[in-house]
Nucleic acid binder design. Structure first.
Lengths: 212, 212
DNA sequence: TTCCTTGTAGGGGTTTTACCTGATTATTTT
DNA sequence: AAAATAATCAGGTAAAACCCCTACAAGGAA
């Protein structure tokens, strides 16, 4: 039996959630809360399996509530159910410790799936939340044009070996060329990318997502 | 009509995907590719709406292929369909420009949903991929425990100067200590973090979000 | 053909790292 | 009080990195 606490300041919506979740035989709604403080205190008392919580609530807002819950009840999973589509909300709630993020216009099946996923120790993020989290990664796609593309093929090989932490000697052995040649390539790479040493080169690589 | 290119080196699986996707009236499989280079060249020629691609392929691997596709065909969306569950794959593919990530054991409905989502300009990440992306946010704070925290204050200062690309002499000047002392600190930092040179140190920093 | 680029290789040099050992002083811990 | 740790400085050696330069063969472009 999955014990659920529902926290939302909109009474009608909250009651709707209760009846919706109660329909499932595996789910039992053990309490409701109309604001953040009530949510935290009832959660500490009842230790539910999953807390379904809205972001905007009077008193303690959802974000603060999630932080406290995550700190004091690490075994209780938090599912954020909200109408807020702002990117920052998703990231902040995940940082605060939410294990799931659903928009209120999701299908009701999805809510039940999410609650069950969290109860099973997994996570559940809506397609929207997932796209926000992913978008934090794929912004600077074509940034690596300017200097990096001016490297010759051989120089590019050497470049990658340098940022692996390889020494010139190792590079020479790896490419089966003389140390002097490897040294030349290394020099040209540093020169073309306008960095003074290997450390700066790795920084350059990290900044342009060329690492690993 | 959604025009799809399928790239996977496993012939049987590829043909399975073709028949699966062809069942949907909105989807038309316009080409297949058995390796990364073929995928890129056929994509450039046919400009499909969506490319379904595996990560591990002979020739050009999926990651490189995705990078090139994303650079040369920004309007073509890439859906990664793979059996790789490694966290790094998800992040790297998203960084490379993938708009979707599905595991091969997903339901076939999910594949069709994902293709349609990408064709509509949206993204589609499996629950697994979403959890990986989310995990990047609720961990890293306490991840840098083991070696980094063993640095003394002074060593930590030196550490940060090294990853800025500073030389020992510059560090000495910056901290107003002798070159020899700076050299000692540097040595201890490399030793404690178990890296061989500055390049590896920057890699370490990048991996643990200590950069910038 | 001549010119340019790329990849190769070497000479000779300085600077920077890396790896030792040893020592002094101050602070913290036991 | 004694011991451990942190921070400082020094000397020496060997390797690696960095910076000049020249040189030559192969391939493509002017």
């Amino acid at each position: 039996m999955i014990r659920v606490l529902i926290a939302d300041d909109h009474t009608i919506l909250r009651h709707g959630l209760v009846s919706l979740l109660s329909k499932d035989d595996c789910i039992q709604v053990v309490a409701e809360a109309a604001d953040g403080l009530e949510a935290v205190s009832k959660a500490l008392e009842l230790k539910p399996t999953v807390i379904v919580i809205d972001i905007s609530m009077p008193g303690l807002n959802g974000m603060e509530a999630v932080k406290r819950l995550n700190g004091q009840l690490p075994d209780t999973k938090v599912l954020v159910l909200t109408m807020h589509e702002e990117q920052e909300y998703v990231i902040h709630m995940v940082r605060a410790g939410a294990s799931g993020y659903l928009l209120k216009d999701s299908a009701s099946d999805e809510l039940i799936d999410a609650v069950k996923a969290l109860a099973a120790g997994k996570t559940y993020y809506s397609q929207y939340a997932a796209s926000v989290l992913a978008s934090q990664y794929n912004q600077p796609a074509e940034n690596w044009q300017d200097p990096y593309k001016n490297l010759t093929n051989r120089e590019r090989e050497v470049f990658h070996l340098i940022i692996e932490g390889k020494t010139t000697k190792e590079i020479a052995r790896s490419l089966d060329i003389s140390v002097k040649t490897a040294e030349n390539h290394r020099g040209k790479v540093l020169d073309k990318l306008n960095v003074a040493n290997a450390a700066e080169l790795v920084r350059y690589a990290a900044k342009n997502n060329l690492l690993l």
